Amino acid sequence: MKNVYTVPLGATVISLLLTACASSPENLPPFPADALPPPNLQVDAGKAGMATVRVVLQFKSGTQQAFDDENFVTGLQVQAQVPMHYITSVSADTHVYGLELPATAGAAPAVQRLQALTSVQRAELDTRATTK
C-alpha cells in the first residue's frame, strides 16, 4: 500500500532545500573581514617569484628550546623579517630553517638579523643543501 504522505513530504523537503540554496547573500551571516583563505590557497598564493633559502642556525649551548615549535619559529620569523619555517635538525643545537624570499632578494640581511639574536651562536646559509 502506498503512503499518501510520501509525495507531499518529499516535495516540501525539496522545495525547502531549493529555497535555502537560492537565498540571497544578504541572508547569509557576515564574512569576517580578517578571515584567512583556506590553507591550501595560502600555500599557493603569491608563490610565483619566491624562493626558499635554507639557513643553518647553531644555538648557544644551554639554550633549552623546542627548536621546531611554532611559537619559537614565529619569533625567529619576526627577527628575520621574512616568512620562515623549520626544516630539520642537524644536531642537538644546530637546526635548518627555510626563509621564503623573493627570487630577486638576497638572504644576507635576514641572516644578519638572525645572527643578532642572543641565543644564536652562528647563522649562515646552508651551502650543503642539495637538490634531489
Rank of each mutant, 00 (worst) to 15 (best):
M1K: 00
K2V: 15
N3R: 02
V4K: 04
V4T: 02
T6N: 03
P8T: 08
P8E: 13
L9N: 11
L9S: 11
T12N: 01
I14H: 07
L16A: 13
L17Q: 05
L17I: 08
L18P: 01
L18W: 15
S23A: 08
E26V: 09
L28V: 08
P29H: 04
P29W: 10
P29K: 01
A33N: 08
D34R: 01
D34A: 05
P37Q: 05
P38Y: 11
L41K: 01
Q42C: 07
V43K: 01
D44H: 00
G46F: 08
A51I: 08
V53E: 11
V53S: 00
V55L: 10
V55A: 10
L57T: 08
L57K: 02
Q58K: 09
Q64A: 13
F67C: 00
V73S: 11
V73I: 05
V78I: 10
Q79C: 07
Q79L: 12
A80S: 03
Q81F: 12
V82S: 08
P83G: 07
T88Y: 15
S89I: 01
V90I: 11
S91D: 14
D93Q: 06
V96T: 04
V96L: 06
L99I: 01
L101R: 03
T104R: 04
A105V: 09
A105F: 05
G106E: 14
P109D: 13
V111F: 13
V111Y: 06
R113C: 10
L114F: 13
Q115W: 02
A116V: 02
R122Y: 14
L125Y: 00
L125M: 08
D126A: 06
R128W: 15
T130W: 08
T131K: 03
K132E: 15
